[in-house]
Amino acid sequence: MRLAFMGTPGFSVPALLALHQAGHEIAAVYSQPPRPAGRGHVLTPSPVQREAERLGLPVRTPERLRRDEAEHAAFRALELDAAVVVAYGLILPAAMLDAPRRGCLNIHASLLPRWRGAAPFQAAILAGDTECGVTIMQMDPGLDTGPMLRAEAVPIGADTDATMLHDSLSALGARLIVEELAHPSTPVKQDESLATLVPKLSRADGRLDFTQPAVALDRRVRAMTPWPGASTTLDGVPLKIGRATPVAMTHRAPPGTALDDRLLIACGDGALRLDRLQAPGRAMMEADAFLRGRAVPAGSLFT
């Protein structure tokens, strides 16, 4: 099948590889343009662009698409059977959505219609969902509103963080899109009454508010790993929290207060044991290693 592939981050790479290995003709790979990265702010190609170039595939990196009629014409000229879109990051206009014979298929990292938008599996962890998944969707002009073609769930365990879910959903999406192209499914309209929407994550989403219940803070730590990272402050020093454990207990201390010298922190309900931490300029480390470098006595206040 003659395809275009449209994706940008590492999450998209397994699908590109799977389609290539399945023998599809990938006429063009679209990715966002190289961005400044690192301390030197060197222009760096996206993971998808790097992988496409390694495979010898033609790459296009337009800055925008919506009003670029030259790009629309170039896309139509590819004479595609379908386009596969996964975490591309640019909105496709109707002129491009309608160009391929089978339209544009999106690999979305949630069980639609739950968690439309930019951070679906992080939202699933944050909400306490017991499962997430991948939906292959026929794209339309709306935001993740098109008909569903196939979906498969994966469990979210008590220790599942966003890094783990990212990797499992990325691999699942790669398998499902190959299956869908080989054996097309009957489209199923989404139930709008069940739709939920999640916005793009920001650094502020990682901030821990200890007035919340410990179980909610544990979910936030797991949902924000690795980016933007859960964070708090101790004596004016910002800390990132890489892993934590909620503890069911009754206490009288104000939220944010250390209840012992082993990083057990009072919450609005219960307490949160900080298991992995990172201080500025240091690597993420286990709590024991952190405490060998800095004592945190009972009564210390995290804000």
Results as ranks from 00 to 15, higher is better:
P14H: 06
A15K: 06
P33D: 11
V42A: 09
P45V: 08
L57W: 03
P58V: 14
R67K: 15
D68Y: 01
H72T: 10
F75M: 12
E79C: 14
L80V: 01
A82E: 02
V86W: 04
G89F: 04
I91Q: 12
A95T: 03
R101C: 13
G103M: 05
L126Y: 10
T130V: 10
Q138V: 04
M139C: 11
A153I: 05
V154I: 05
P155E: 05
A158Y: 04
D161L: 05
D167T: 02
A171V: 04
R175F: 03
V178Q: 05
V178I: 13
A182H: 02
S185R: 06
T196H: 01
P199E: 15
R203Y: 13
D205R: 11
D209M: 15
T211E: 01
V221M: 00
R222L: 08
M224R: 08
A230N: 11
L239H: 10
A248C: 12
M249I: 07
H251M: 07
R252E: 14
T257K: 09
A258G: 13
D260S: 09
R262L: 14
L263H: 01
I265E: 13
I265W: 00
G268D: 13
A271V: 07
Q278F: 11
Q278V: 00
G281H: 12
F302G: 00
T303I: 05
